[in-house]
Nucleic acid binder design. Structure first.
Lengths: 248, 248
DNA sequence: CCGTGTCTGTCCGCTTGCGTACCGTGAGTT
DNA sequence: AACTCACGGTACGCAAGCGGACAGACACGG
């Protein structure tokens, strides 16, 4: 369904696409297209949420930072989601740092407009809550993965999640950045990436990683990848009619 | 405020206590008191959610289990919360395994009744969404903590979180159980607990841990403890009036 | 009072990943 | 063309935690 829309149509985003035409029409005038600058911080930990962002092909990371300087990504947001869900949960501040991971377009919306539509209690309300459930599941899975799985599996999973969101196997990412994301040392990424390359899963050079063998990599990474993906696909297929039926 | 209620009053639970009398009155007839059997599974991963549980002094764990048999806790629920939030997010199945960690009373409510009240869009709606935000924050912090902090700090944090929920420094817990919770080996817990005991933070014997020096332990554990606690205290102080004001 | 099963202490070698540091090299700039 | 600097490869000793296994200790029921 998204394929038939122009590449920069807000309907590339699954949440917006899931809205019935009438509901979408109320939001549309307030959506602003914005180029996402690579690495830009959208929200600071405990910082205000003024806009929410609906990625089209961009990817956004939610990163937890500790006092000791360590950092790990706890969740990602792509075309399937929206940044700043806390806003609809009644808290206008961000729990963690949120940054642009990979650019390539998003639309943004003022929180006030979002809340206005959300509080009508119609489709947007339901879609965002379902998304919240799935996002929560992803964060929970990440918590488990961070504790139980090893660096190569985690790195592989992360690359695949990237691929799914930006829809490309070419990922402009440095080892330094990857280190922040999966929560290991920069040198650790070099070692880990080498083993993935030796297995033929990926290729890379200076700030650029290519997934060379998608199927093989999918076979290699931990279950967490599939679990989260399945969850997103399941809710993706729920339109708001189906949702009402389920509620009976 | 909860202190003036009898020990088994549903109002021991912060969510129920946060409701205006009228809203609470609509729910009250459907609340069933239930003794929580230690170790009992409330929901299975992907299993149905028929009832939600409001702990009074019990503690409930949300645990992620992997194919390889590993497990970690990703979140806890005590008097400040409710199990089964997914139900109000429009998904009637549990993301993870949810089990009773420590008994001592809870009230439960049929999901249908919960949704009926939730969909009025009044106090319960807002309170549960705010709780969802905070729960999400806790899971995210756990994800970071699992990756960046070491076993002794994590164990200490977990014991303190227990203490806060059951309001006692006496915790009937075996090493085996703790191992599941913090995601390390049973033998690892023995070693870790020993170091905490040598520092004078805790004492323990066969299935029973006592926090011996609360202040010292609080000083020892990682920041994650304070961060999550602060978040819960902040929302605890938001009554639904204050929330409406913020929404303007 | 004894037996049985649960809970805990401890030990071994081993793997993963850390912290730190140094050097090569590619890319873009002037 | 030379320079600069961000990026990546590698290496070293070290700490944390794993997997597995075994033995002692306590609790409870018969």
């Amino acid at each position: 369904m998204s394929a038939q829309n122009p590449a920069n149509s807000p309907l590339q985003n699954s949440i917006l696409a899931a809205l019935p035409p009438k509901d979408y029409a109320r939001l549309a005038p307030h959506l602003e297209f914005c180029e996402m600058e690579n690495g830009k911080t959208l929200y600071l930990p405990n910082g205000p949420i003024d806009y929410v962002y609906f990625p089209l092909r961009a990817m956004i990371s939610v990163v937890a930072v500790t006092a000791s300087g360590g950092s790990v990504e706890v969740g990602v947001i792509g075309r399937e989601g929206m940044s700043g869900i806390s806003a609809v949960l009644g808290v206008a501040k961000s729990a963690d740092e949120v940054m642009v991971q990979l650019p390539d377009g998003a639309v943004r919306l003022e929180v006030a407009k979002l809340l206005q539509e959300f509080s009508r209690g119609e489709a947007l309300h339901d879609v965002l809550l379902t998304y919240t459930h799935t996002f929560l599941k992803m964060v929970a899975q990440t918590a488990a993965c961070n504790r139980l799985h090893h660096a190569p599996e985690r790195l592989g999973r992360w690359l695949l999640m990237c691929r799914d969101r930006v829809q490309s196997t070419e990922l402009p990412l440095t080892h330094e950045f990857l280190a922040m994301m999966i929560g290991i040392r920069r040198a650790g990424v070099s070692e880990t990436a080498l083993t993935l390359q030796e297995k033929g899963f990926i290729r890379y050079k200076r700030g650029h990683i290519t997934i060379a063998d998608e199927k093989a990599l999918e076979g290699f990474v931990c279950e967490c990848y599939e679990i989260v993906k399945a969850e997103f696909e399941e809710i993706g297929s729920l339109n708001s009619e189906a949702r009402k039926t389920l509620a009976q």
